[in-house]
Design a protein around this nucleic acid. Structure first.
Length: 471
RNA sequence: GGCGACGUACCCAAGUGGUUAAGGGAAGGCUCUGCAAAAGCCUCAUUCGUCGGUUCGAAUCCGACCGUCGCCUCCA
């Protein structure tokens, strides 16, 4: 395996080797659970899922950890607005988040730690930072002193001395030595709900902005992570601060490879509620698109490229998925035909070549577009051979196995249909064939229309009738 | 103001010194078909934002310009 990844810190492609041979510890920044995630968020989460699947396909084992930020200004504000205890409020949003992931066929991470379940771990880090002289306290709030960490800015390449002293600092009632310092622990303030406060050795308060990721990543993956990911907006200040906190506390390198996904934009513009181009997954699905088409679109553009989301592109994605699905079905039929002959050497070689090309795509910084290009090259070859009658059952079986294997990373082909639906549809197809034999086309068309209305598409082929659910 | 990314056909997009410039979608043609749909096949960029430069050779490297976008403040 020779996997190359674009490390944000190095600003270049690096040869990736996990710390423990064959095993990757992966920390993926998760959502702040105060609303329904939008398709831009989901682009990042789908990418991370594809990355896990691709790493596994390259022979690595992966432990993925994704945090759930359930304590911050936004979650507190939301809970107060709805008159709910913090936990009850965030529980609801965590549930819809998992729903969306499931809908998009995302394989769950090994752990989804919640910040509020790790307050003691965070307190420990603050204590360590304090022992090492990286913090100071003022009014119950503990600040990280940027001046005590010379490497600050190495990830984002932002020079601390040039940081603008933003007007927003005035909003902050806390006292700090330097406007650039950030809170690791926020002392309780007047009017904050009890459900968002903890009594700790540091006093009463709540964890600061970025501390949870340091605490939870190190708890589940050790003090040095192989890969840490997020979207580009996390680079500064979130990840920069994580480095300062983590390395300040342990004295060890925090992350070996930083990976950041570009944003999704809509019709060439940033997605924003005020522009009316803000979409959640249910918004998109309610317009009649399949989750598999959405997933395909989100993963088809390599992660470091901005993804321009349009409904035109989504329709294109649906068609592309149908092309894969259709070949899968054709191969399924062909491979079922009785024939004891072994797969032909020439075809086996073609499969091997395609497999290598797909793999090379993933090895090159998870280049999904290149991998898809290679896969579709194979799709055309398989279709052509199939059409020419040159594909034996064993060849078809080999092709189908490869297609399914490729889909192990893509995750866009449907699961097998459920048996009761299958029996029903087969029955209707038989009835339609009867009607067609009688040349009762009104009756046969009625059956076709009825199934179409239910999203089931019939294809009359020389080999018989095939059906599938519309992508 | 500081830092950074991007600009390849109608749309999306791979390609980062020598290839016929991948692939997907759309469109047109053909095959199949009771009709249709679907599916499959074929066609579809002498050219890579513009202008210069380096080089035997550039979409790929350098410079300028034009355009789009992002971060610098919570943000996937």
């Amino acid at each position: 395996m020779s996997l190359r990844l674009f490390d944000t810190a190095a600003r270049s492609l690096v040869d990736f080797q996990p710390l423990a041979p064959g095993h990757v510890g992966l920390y993926t920044c998760g959502p702040t659970v105060y609303n329904r995630v939008h398709i831009g968020n989901l682009r990042t989460f789908v990418w991370e899922d594809v990355m896990c699947r691709a790493l596994r396909s390259l022979g690595l084992s992966v432990t993925q950890v994704m945090n759930l930020t359930d304590i911050d200004d936004k979650t507190i504000r939301g809970a107060v607005a709805e008159g709910l205890p913090l936990r009850e409020f965030t529980d609801r949003h965590i549930a819809t988040f998992f729903e969306d992931l499931k809908t998009l066929n995302v394989i769950p991470a090994a752990v989804y730690p919640r910040a509020t379940d790790h307050v003691p771990e965070m307190v420990e880090i603050v204590k360590k930072l304090t022992e090492r002289g990286h913090t100071y306290e003022s009014d119950g709030t503990f600040w990280f002193r940027i001046a005590s960490f010379p490497a600050y800015g190495k990830l984002s390449r932002i020079d601390p001395s040039s940081m603008k002293r933003g007007a927003r600092v005035a909003d902050d009632e806390y006292e700090k030595e330097d406007v650039r310092d950030f809170a690791v622990w926020k002392g309780a303030k007047e009017g904050e709900p009890e459900s968002a406060l903890w009594e700790t050795e540091l006093g009463k308060g709540r964890p600061g902005w970025h501390l949870e990721c340091s605490a939870m990543s190190m708890k589940y993956l050790g003090e040095t992570l192989d890969i840490h990911t997020g979207a580009v907006d996390n680079i500064f200040p979130h990840h920069e601060n994580e480095i300062a906190q983590s390395e300040g506390a342990t004295g060890k390198p925090f992350v070996r490879t930083w990976l950041h996904a570009e944003h999704l934009i809509v019709d060439g513009e940033k997605m924003a509620k005020s522009k009316g181009n803000f979409f959640t997954l249910p918004d998109v699905l309610s317009r009649g698109y399949s989750p598999r088409a959405v997933r395909y679109l989100l993963l088809s553009v390599p992660y470091r490229q901005k993804l321009n989301f349009t409904f035109d592109a989504l329709r294109g994605a649906a068609s592309a998925v149908e092309r894969l699905e259709s070949l899968d079905a054709r191969l399924g039929e062909r491979s079922g035909a009785a024939d004891a002959a072994a797969a032909s050497e020439a075809f086996v070689a073609k499969v091997a070549e395609a497999r290598g090309a797909v793999r090379a795509g993933y090895e090159d910084d998870l280049n999904t577009a290149a991998a898809l290009g290679a896969l579709f090259g194979f799709v055309k070859e398989a279709n052509t051979s199939l059409e020419a009658g040159q594909l034996g059952p064993a060849d078809a079986a080999a092709a189908r196995a490869f297609l399914r294997e490729a889909d192990g990373v893509l995750g866009v082909l449907p699961e097998g249909a459920d048996a009761s639906l299958e029996a029903e549809v087969e029955g209707k197809i038989a009835a339609r064939q009867e009607a067609r034999k009688r040349r009762d086309f009104a009756a046969s068309d009625a059956i076709r229309d009825e199934l179409a209305a239910r999203g089931i598409l019939l294809e009359d082929t020389p080999q018989g009738v095939r059906w599938r659910r519309k992508g």
